[in-house]
Design a protein around this nucleic acid. Structure first.
Length: 824
RNA sequence: GCGAGGGUGGUGGAACUGGCAGACACGCUAGACUUAGGAUCUAGUGCCUUUGGCAUGCGGGUUCAACUCCCGCCCCUCGCACCA
């Protein structure tokens, strides 16, 4: 049996590439650069599975393609190495997180290297390395100096399983993003980064990210959650205190029948201190606080609330209305208090019905008025103002502006913009993270660690314990105050690991620079990232944080650009039995097993061919052999032809026969198709299909030397192109095919093939003949046959004539080179 | 509820600005070569009542022509969700 010795071929090129180091790059102003980055992994220590392989292969195909297009390609790899799993493993197995992480990095490095992916390993970095986190700390100090890193006491998300606080972005449906356990609230003093200062720019600049998926941009837009409205004050009757509310529907202000405040709103404790309601409200607030995030956020649950006994005065109408404490009002958003308009807000409507509060209609549909008693739901659509004083009769959209202006003139309220985005809580009560470079001194207070004393090193000689590990290290905690020299204490919280990953793409430009966070020349050469590749799960978290960091550094004058990733590609996940392939689900297909059976090229090819890369891929091994057979067919074909097509450089004669012309056409069409597929959204699956079509055409031809066999120079042209086209997808085979054709240097140093439009053009086109829109016949015509001629030929067609039954056509439509439709 | 994406043969998936639906594969069927076939090669393969008819989630519409455009539904995936 003829063989395709894939193991020997892959082994051979594995060794050659290791020697030549294809991935190693330097800044070269003479060459156009291309920075291709796959999101760096957390070194989990599990074996690489098909999900990983898909991820890295997508990046690798792009890297190899861009190399062949003549770009100076940067493709680095590193490790998002801090994090909780290392601590959990330490508790379970008694291995120090540092050792655990280092071991995992070693294991994963070996596995990645076995896949022969192109990386510049000389730039490898790990966020847990003091030479890296020194600059993470330096960046924290930049935020601190700019007043954007601050500490405050606030109710925060607390995961009791992970024993740490979480950022808003890390709470998914009320549960911890990592361990999926419900998240509670705690009042704690914590460090924050003031990302809210950048809310508007983070929103506006989404428009610049034209090469990002729409989906991700929308998710960020929703997360930032900008809303325009009016903030105004209501005097609390009988006091000198005002209650401030925020509304996006100021047009409904004449329909306010009560106000709702968050149960924990400070005005309640203040004004009810000595009243009987005070105790009841406090009890209610306590009850609400105990509810988990999930319970409180559930829209299905009936809204709870109670009358506080306080009365507020609506500045628009002068009416006195009750103040309710209600669990559906959130202290964190707006002012923590709302004006309630039951007639025009469903939540207020539900609450009013449950508590017997009045409903006042102030906006009616165009054609009729509404009777509050007959309403079963709030009227939230646009309409016309009624019972709204001077604004009656206006369309409500117009009234919105008018009322806001009136309130501003009267000094009652003002127009404001609110964001849903919260400041980024970055403290973590964990050991295995980047220490926050702050010292607390009795005399000087909060003191940042001076830059020349960085890094604040994580002590490694500790016995691991479940919590409070850093606090227990006297050597770490007890330090002299950097300012006054008196005994002081270090901050023992570490930073959220998302801080580490918010700037790593910058460090790759100059990973060994010991004096600076990055070398400006190198960063300016490589950045921004031309193509970023990663999972959709980072659509908000990592991608929003990285954009924030870049904008901040831009404002500090450290970067000339203010968006880090020019193009983003989110690859689909690999599923098995309907679930994401992951170690914890136990449904993985191991990479090394697949590679052992079929080789790297087949494994890559199968993953790339099975589905478009952005789509989810349900793993079924059936079909792997299809790719294997294809690669074998290609290899055997080159074996049969390699002697006949050598040496290179034989001229292609001008007077070729039909077979040769067809082969050249197919070759040039394939070059065109694959190049287009790679350029538009990485359509690897159809690119491979195009390659298969070419191979099907080739293998259908007579053998070398046989009668009717293609001209060797023409075959040479095909095989030369095919070797290059195949190389990014099937790198080992690509190199081998190139060598079989006599190529001395690596195929990846060869230019990407170009098609010739004239050769790719068809000599005859099929024009479909339709009668009343149904295909009845076909014509083979030279391209650009005049419409009149096409019409004549169509009408002369015997099938058409038969269907005509003597009638004259009502209409004939000709689409040049495509179709003719005869309508009777 | 809001937002985004999706629904095409037995399966994964193709189809440019509306112009031959099902490329390319998998699987299946038959045949060849074989002691053998889970190897390889060849042919066939959307469905049906086959000079034709019906088919791209369902129902309408626009058009000479609709997977593609418009209107109304259904289902699936993801994100956000009492944000005032």
């Amino acid at each position: 049996m003829e063989e395709y010795p894939f193991q020997a071929i892959e082994e051979k090129w594995h060794l050659k590439w290791n020697e030549s180091g294809l991935g190693r790059v330097q800044e070269d102003p003479a060459k156009p650069k291309y920075y291709c980055l796959v999101m760096f992994p957390y070194p989990s220590g599990s074996n690489l599975h098909m999900g990983h392989v898909r991820n890295y292969t997508i990046g690798d195909v792009i890297v190899r393609y861009k190399l062949m297009q003549g770009f100076n390609v940067l493709s680095p790899m590193g490790w998002d190495a801090f994090g909780l799993p290392a601590e959990n493993a330490a508790i379970k197995n008694g291995i120090h997180p540092h050792e655990y992480t280092r071991n995992n990095i070693a294991v994963m490095t070996r596995q990645l290297k076995a896949l022969d992916l192109i990386y510049d390993w000389s730039r490898e970095l790990a966020t847990c390395d003091p030479e890296y986190y020194r600059w993470t700390q330096w960046l924290f100090l930049q935020f601190y100096q700019a007043g954007l890193a601050y500490k405050k006491k606030n109710p925060v998300n607390w995961c009791d399983t992970c024993k740490t606080v979480l950022a808003n972005e890390q709470v998914i449906e009320g549960a911890c993003w990592r361990c999926k356990q419900p998240v509670g609230k705690r009042d704690l003093e914590q460090w924050y980064l003031k990302i809210t200062d950048y809310a508007q720019r983070l929103l506006d600049d989404l428009a610049k990210l034209k090469k990002w998926p729409e989906r991700v941009r929308t998710m960020q837009e929703n997360w930032i959650g900008r809303s325009e409205g009016v903030e105004f004050k209501l005097r609390i009757d009988g006091t000198q205190r005002d209650l401030e509310v925020f509304t996006t529907r100021i047009d409904t202000v004449f329909g306010v029948t009560y106000v709702s405040v968050a149960p924990e709103h400070p005005i309640l404790t203040e004004l009810l201190a000595c009243k009987p309601e005070g105790t009841l409200v406090a009890e209610f607030a306590e009850k609400v606080k105990l509810e988990s995030e999930i319970e409180r956020a559930s829209t299905a649950k009936p809204k709870q609330g109670m009358d506080t006994g306080l009365r507020a005065i609506n500045p628009a109408t002068g009416e006195k209305i009750p103040v309710y404490a209600a669990d559906y009002v959130l202290m964190e958003y707006g002012t923590g208090a709302i004006m309630a308009v039951p007639a025009h807000d469903q939540r207020d409507f539900d609450f009013a019905r449950a508590h017997g509060l009045p409903v006042k209609v102030v906006i009616r549909p165009e054609d009729r008025d509404l009777d509050p008693a007959g309403m079963t739901e709030a009227f939230v659509a646009d309409g016309v103002q009624v019972r709204s004083g001077a604004f009656d009769g206006l369309p409500n959209r117009a009234a919105m502006t008018k009322i806001a202006e009136w309130m501003e003139q009267q000094g009652i309220g003002r127009r404001v913009v609110n964001f849903r985005l919260r400041d980024w809580l970055i403290s973590r009560q964990r050991y295995w993270g980047c220490p926050i470079p702050i010292v607390y001194c009795q005399k000087c207070g909060q003191v940042p660690v001076p830059e020349d004393q960085l890094p604040v090193t994580l002590p490694l000689d500790l016995t691991y314990q479940a919590s409070g590990m850093l606090e227990s290290s006297e050597a770490f905690v007890k330090v002299p105050c950097p300012r006054c020299g008196q005994p002081a204490r270090r901050e023992t919280d570490t930073m959220d690991t998302f801080i580490d990953s918010s700037w790593y793409y910058l460090r790759y430009a100059s990973p060994r620079d010991a004096n600076r966070v990055f070398d400006p020349t190198a960063v300016n050469y490589w950045m921004p990232v031309d193509q970023y590749i990663g999972g959709i799960e980072h659509a908000i978290l990592h991608l929003l944080y990285s954009r924030f960091f870049t904008k901040f550094l831009h404002d500090r004058g450290l970067l000339p650009f203010d968006e880090p990733f020019a193009a983003l590609f989110t690859q689909g996940m690999v599923l098995k039995d309907g679930q994401v392939m992951s170690k914890s689900k136990g449904n993985t297909v191991a990479a090394d097993e697949m590679v052992g059976r079929f080789g790297i090229d087949t494994t890559r090819g199968f993953i790339l061919f099975a589905a478009p890369p952005e789509r989810e891929l349900e793993w079924v091994d059936q079909g792997v052999e299809g790719i294997f057979r294809f690669l074998r067919r290609v290899y055997l074909f080159y074996q049969r032809w390699q002697e006949a097509v050598r040496p290179a450089g034989a001229a292609i004669p001008a007077d070729l026969g039909e077979t040769d012309r067809q082969l050249r056409r197919k070759t040039h069409q394939t070059i065109r198709r694959i190049t287009e597929d790679l350029d538009q959204d990485f359509k690897f699956n159809t690119a491979i299909a195009a390659m298969m079509e070419l191979v099907n055409a080739l293998t259908g031809l007579p053998e070398p030397g046989a009668a009717g066999a293609p001209h060797p120079a023409v075959m040479r042209e095909s095989l030369d192109a095919l070797a290059r086209l195949a190389a990014p997808f099937f790198p080992h085979l690509g190199e081998e095919l190139w060598a079989m054709l006599g190529g001395a240097e690596s195929v990846f140093k060869q230019p990407w093939p170009r098609h010739d439009q004239a050769i790719a053009a068809e000599e005859l086109v099929t024009v479909v003949v339709q009668v009343n829109g149904k295909v009845r016949s076909r014509l083979e015509l030279p391209p650009r046959t005049p419409s009149a001629e096409v019409e004549r030929l169509a009408l002369a067609d015997e099938r058409v004539a038969a269907l005509a039954e003597g009638r004259k056509p009502k209409k004939v439509i000709v689409v040049p080179d495509k179709l003719v439709n005869v309508v009777f």
